[in-house]
């Protein structure tokens, strides 16, 4: 396996985050190698979205480090963060397309903001990405006129319009029917092969994960339950992993004390999502 010798692209080191007073990620370690598709899985509430947001520099952790392409994202200045974010692409769960811009304007936006290319070149580049995502011909539709699968593909097209080295994809198959979800997985695989991107996918869909992953990390209550190849995950004896694989609820593990704590936790204050202090 060549991947073992490839350099580490993302390294997460003892990452701890809180949501108000509640512990979300608990001294989490993770590393992603260049050129691989890493799928982060877990039930809802396992902290996978928080991990993603922290890796993007949207949330600040309580302690620990996230190093991506040599930059410590958790302690970076705003300027460094913006510099770093120009080299990555992010596709959000709901697409996060701008409702007042047409599809092609959405795709062109990063190019318009960050390059000095003329309008024609920008249009051609945007069209190429639309074509890759099989969206050509829909240039002037508004996001509200697109179907769920099209929105995800458009989000993906926008994420890769700057040809990033690193792509994050939040829940590619959530809210899609299985056929469209499988189609989207094909696009992700295509991106990895054609553009040699390193791709981090956050999902809770098993089929999707098994289709695209080079390695899978299963999160459980803020900790890594297992990290390995598909076969390793499937062969794991870990109860939590097996629960996830077999879609069993893991309620029996809650002790009365924990249950009491859970009930009294309601008052926990909300944390700040995204910083507003510039």
């Amino acid at each position: 396996m060549t991947k073992l010798t490839a350099d580490t692209f993302i390294s997460v080191d003892k990452l701890t985050t809180h949501y108000g007073e509640r512990l979300i990620l608990d001294k989490l370690d993770l590393s992603v190698r260049q050129g691989e598709i890493m799928v982060i899985m877990g039930a809802s509430g396992s902290g996978k979205s928080t991990l993603l947001r922290t890796m993007l520099g949207l949330n600040r952790p309580t302690s620990g480090q996230v190093k991506i392409m040599g930059l410590d994202v958790t302690n970076a200045s705003r300027k460094q963060l913006y510099q770093f974010r120009r080299q990555i692409g992010v596709a959000f769960q709901g697409g996060a397309l701008f409702g007042n811009l047409s599809l092609v304007d959405n795709i062109q936006l990063p190019l318009r903001e960050h390059t000095n290319l003329d309008a024609n070149t920008i249009r051609i580049m945007a069209r190429m990405k639309l074509d890759m995502m099989n969206l050509s011909g829909f240039d002037n539709l508004m996001p509200s006129e697109l179907s769920g699968g099209m929105v995800k593909r458009a989000a993906l097209a926008r994420a890769i319009v700057m040809d990033p080295q690193l792509l994050f994809f939040d829940e590619p198959s959530a809210g899609l029917d299985p056929v469209v979800a499988a189609e989207l997985d094909e696009y992700i695989l295509e991106l990895k092969q054609a553009m040699e991107m390193t791709i981090v996918v956050v999902t809770h869909e098993l089929e999707s994960a098994f289709r695209i992953a080079d390695r899978i990390t299963v999160l459980d209550r803020g900790k890594v339950a297992i990290c390995g190849t598909i076969d390793e995950v499937k062969a794991s004896n870990d109860e939590r992993v097996q629960n996830l694989l077999n879609r069993r609820a893991s309620r029996e593990q809650v002790t009365p004390d924990e249950y009491l704590e859970l009930l009294t936790r309601v008052q926990a204050t909300r944390p700040h999502r995204g910083d507003i202090d510039g």
């Binding site: 947001r53 992010v90 709901g94 697409g95 960050h114």
Partner: peptide
Amino acid sequence: DEQLDALECMAID
């Protein structure tokens, strides 16, 4: 809709 986050992630203030 995470559009504000998307802007941030596109390095657009």
